[in-house]
Computed example of a mutant assay.
Amino acid sequence: MSSLLGLLILIADIYAIIKIAQSSAETLPKILWILGVIFFPVLGLIVWYLAGPGGKN
């Protein structure tokens, strides 16, 4: 069960990193968001979803 949860988090983090890289934000904020998602996989994903670069329009 925990390996399935880990796989789901990994997939969500990869999705977030791709969306961050494709966003219209400037380079430095993108790098900082990607590092946040990499170093804090669950928390970084939640924070990115709520307040990520490019916003939720």
Rank of each mutant, 00 (worst) to 15 (best):
M1W: 10
M1H: 14
M1Q: 14
S2Q: 10
S2W: 08
S2H: 05
S3W: 07
S3N: 11
S3P: 08
S3C: 09
S3M: 13
S3L: 13
L4V: 15
L4M: 13
L4C: 08
L4D: 14
L5N: 06
G6C: 07
G6V: 00
G6A: 11
L7W: 09
L7P: 02
L7C: 10
L7G: 12
L8V: 11
L8I: 11
I9K: 10
I9N: 11
I9T: 14
I9P: 04
I9F: 04
L10I: 06
L10Q: 10
I11V: 12
I11Q: 01
I11R: 05
A12R: 12
A12W: 03
D13Q: 11
I14N: 01
I14V: 13
I14F: 03
I14P: 02
I14Y: 01
I14T: 08
Y15C: 15
Y15Q: 14
I17N: 03
I17M: 11
I17V: 15
I17C: 04
I18P: 02
I18V: 15
I18Q: 09
K19G: 01
K19Q: 13
K19S: 13
I20L: 04
I20M: 06
I20K: 06
A21Y: 08
Q22R: 15
Q22V: 04
Q22M: 13
Q22N: 13
S23Q: 03
S24L: 06
S24M: 09
S24Y: 03
S24H: 05
A25D: 08
A25Y: 01
A25I: 08
E26W: 00
E26Q: 06
T27K: 07
T27S: 07
T27I: 13
T27H: 05
L28S: 10
P29S: 09
P29R: 06
P29A: 11
P29D: 07
K30E: 07
I31M: 13
I31W: 07
L32R: 11
W33T: 15
W33G: 10
W33L: 10
I34F: 00
L35H: 02
L35Q: 08
G36S: 07
G36N: 04
V37C: 05
V37S: 07
V37L: 07
V37D: 06
V37Q: 01
I38N: 01
I38G: 02
I38H: 00
I38K: 06
I38T: 09
F39E: 06
F40V: 11
F40D: 03
F40C: 14
V42S: 00
V42Q: 01
V42E: 03
L43N: 02
L43H: 00
L43R: 04
G44K: 09
G44L: 08
G44I: 07
L45T: 10
I46M: 15
I46C: 11
I46N: 08
I46R: 09
V47C: 00
V47A: 13
V47D: 07
W48L: 00
Y49L: 15
Y49H: 12
Y49Q: 13
L50G: 10
L50W: 09
L50M: 15
A51F: 09
A51V: 08
A51S: 13
G52Y: 00
G52A: 01
P53K: 05
P53W: 00
P53R: 08
P53M: 05
P53G: 05
G54S: 04
G54E: 01
G54A: 00
G55I: 09
G55T: 12
G55R: 11
G55Y: 03
K56Y: 01
K56R: 12
